[in-house]
Design a protein around this nucleic acid. Structure first.
Lengths: 164, 164
DNA sequence: TTGGAAAGTCAACAAGGCTGACGTAAATTC
DNA sequence: GAATTTACGTCAGCCTTGTTGACTTTCCAA
């Protein structure tokens, strides 16, 4: 790193360094999803169900269209997932009181149990990685990830309940 | 963070903090794949082709089975992707000289052009994120990602040509 | 009261995973 | 030299999860 006359800090990032970052994302994401995937296989659910469960847990009472924006899929695709979760009694869909067109989504007890199981596994890995890398690394990790998001997604990300 | 008598550094990571990390991974990965996905749509190729192209570029002459391990898919799945890339003249498959059962894979000129296009876009985003976050953050980012990988994947990751 | 938004649903399709079975050529082992 | 194993390719069929397009119902708001 070098400070230029203008005060800007230049990073000399070779293509190779950046490529390594790209590959790190690829391999790490595999690990990131591995544990929940393992739990879900044989349970009739997949990654799509996990994502829905996660964000409903995170924002209880969220609407379908809000979920659509966060997940970035079509309503037909999300509907198929929600349908099975609702039919199986993991998710409850409540007609909105102020706007009755909206459906507010909540996890049932059963849904919360699965959510717990999935997130326990995923958090364990994340926590282990955090511990191994140390607190300074954790902060950098989060900064780079946030900078990598599309602005819309960053907005959604920051709107989720604070705490981190 | 607190230093214990034993010298160990404890991280007090609330579930909320860890959850934010999980969500950061989710949203960032979307950004990470967004640009190549956009380029590929309308070109008859998808993310699977991108991955194959990336790792063939990265390790010219790699064998099919090596690629299988790195990508973590079945040979039938990889074959479908390679088939189209070979038929379209983006990838060249060469019978091995020392072991004629193996096929060594190379990008053709045409394949290198597409690789360049895809990786230019992806590197631009990664580089921008790196610049925005700063060099210390970049180091932490890489450390956490590496700690998050499965050991097998970490081995593959570290075996790829150094430079970062 | 009517237009448009939110949601749900049906149908059809595609990408990209998977398993299982089978074939072939080449290398290795017995 | 024969048998076995390895590396690869391929056929067939299945599943998940994404897509479009069309249509309906419900309901808010102008």
């Amino acid at each position: 790193m070098v400070d230029t006359p203008g005060g800007e800090s230049l990073l000399f990032l070779s293509d190779e360094q950046v490529r390594k970052g790209i590959e790190a994302m690829f391999f790490a994401y595999r690990g990131f999803t591995a544990d929940p995937d393992r739990i879900l296989e044989g349970k009739d659910y997949g990654r799509a169900h996990h994502r829905a469960i996660h964000f409903i847990h995170r924002s209880p009472g969220t609407t379908v269209s809000n979920l659509l924006m966060i997940l970035g899929v079509t309503k037909q695709s999300l509907n198929r997932v929600l349908r099975s979760l609702i039919d199986d009694g993991l998710v409850r869909s409540e007609k909105g009181k102020v706007d009755a067109r909206e459906r507010h989504l909540y996890l049932t007890e059963k849904g919360q149990m699965l959510e717990r199981e999935l997130s326990d596994a995923q958090r364990a890995r994340m926590r282990a990685a955090y511990r191994a890398a140390g607190p300074a690394a954790v902060s950098g990790f989060r900064q780079v990830l946030e900078a990598m998001m599309d602005p819309d997604m960053r907005r959604h990300f920051n709107r989720l309940k604070e705490g981190g």
